[in-house]
């Protein structure tokens, strides 16, 4: 590993940060949430993102890693790429101007750097030509069930985060009847199961040896949907969407956001 090769990895990371961060860079709610969401929740969200980045670095960073120290260094580098990319683009889009207060500016950058730094980490895998697929597959095998759950969490977080800031999540939850919500929940689980085990995407999971449909469903699909719902709850809480809302309405919102989250969990293996 030389600096030149690392520089190529960094360039791909910038590419990933732009492409994966773009939808949220141009989402109005992200700008206002940057200064209006609870400061403690924002700090927690950035910290949680860093932890997820360390995990993602192990499975697929912009370089091969050999130790926790290197995974942490990669996570910081990806976060740095995310912050720099977000700052440049937010300034270019005039979302940040220099007559704003520092708290306002930093808040917007910090929130935007969450999707951008995950994008930076994924950049190498998605944009790189030579990938060490074998090493990656070995790691996924080696990490076992816990690793599988982590990848689902990362996928759910990424996709849920892309939807959660918008008003539409709440609006959809308000206009759905309980029957709609139940149907959407069933559909989410069905798609999660089918995407992971049945339709032959690359990186698809083979059904565990001797596993029956029921055990696979319980161990992976139901666990995955559970993770998707928890991630949805965490993201909605971070954005203050659950404050002062009745439990029944929160449940509706969870099912709505759980839909993209479970698709994210299902396709994590393809993206990561």
């Amino acid at each position: 590993m030389t600096s030149e090769r690392y520089a190529i990895g960094l360039a791909r990371a910038f590419g990933g940060a732009i492409i994966f961060g773009l939808p949220l860079l141009m989402t109005m709610e992200m700008w206002s949430l940057g200064f209006s969401m609870g400061r403690g929740r924002l700090l927690l969200l950035v910290g949680f993102t860093l932890a997820v980045l360390v995990g993602l670095s192990y499975f697929s960073g912009f370089e091969k890693t050999f130790s926790l120290k290197e995974d942490a260094m990669d996570a910081f580098a990806a976060f740095g790429v995310g912050v720099i990319t977000s700052t440049l683009l937010l300034v270019a889009l005039a979302v940040i101007t220099f007559d704003m207060s520092w708290g306002d500016i930093i808040g917007r950058i910090a929130l935007q750097s969450v999707p951008a730094s995950v994008g930076a980490m994924l950049g190498r895998k998605q944009l790189g030509a030579e990938q060490d697929m074998q090493a990656e597959e070995e790691r996924k095998q080696e990490a076992g069930y816990a690793g599988e759950l982590f990848l689902m969490l990362a996928g759910a977080l990424f996709l849920a985060f892309n939807m959660a800031p918008t008003e539409e999540m709440i609006l959809i939850a308000f206009q759905m009847t309980p029957w709609h919500a139940l149907a959407l929940g069933v559909l989410s689980m069905l798609l999660l199961h089918v995407f992971v085990y049945s339709i032959g995407f690359s990186g698809q999971e083979s059904r565990p040896e001797g596993g029956t449909f029921l055990s696979t469903f319980l161990r992976f699909t139901l666990a995955g949907y559970g993770i998707a719902l928890l991630v949805s709850l965490y993201v909605l809480w971070s954005f203050g969407r659950t404050d002062g809302v009745a439990v029944a309405e929160i449940a509706n919102m969870l099912v709505v956001l759980g839909f993209p989250a479970s698709l994210g969990a299902a396709t994590a293996r393809l993206v990561v």
């Binding site: 690392y6 910081f76 740095g80 720099i84």
Partner: peptide, 12 residues
């Protein structure tokens, strides 16, 4: 560990 990696991680 290449120097660029130290730099990138340090800035991050």
């Amino acid at each position: 560990v290449p120097w660029l990696e130290w730099l990138a991680a340090g800035i991050g």
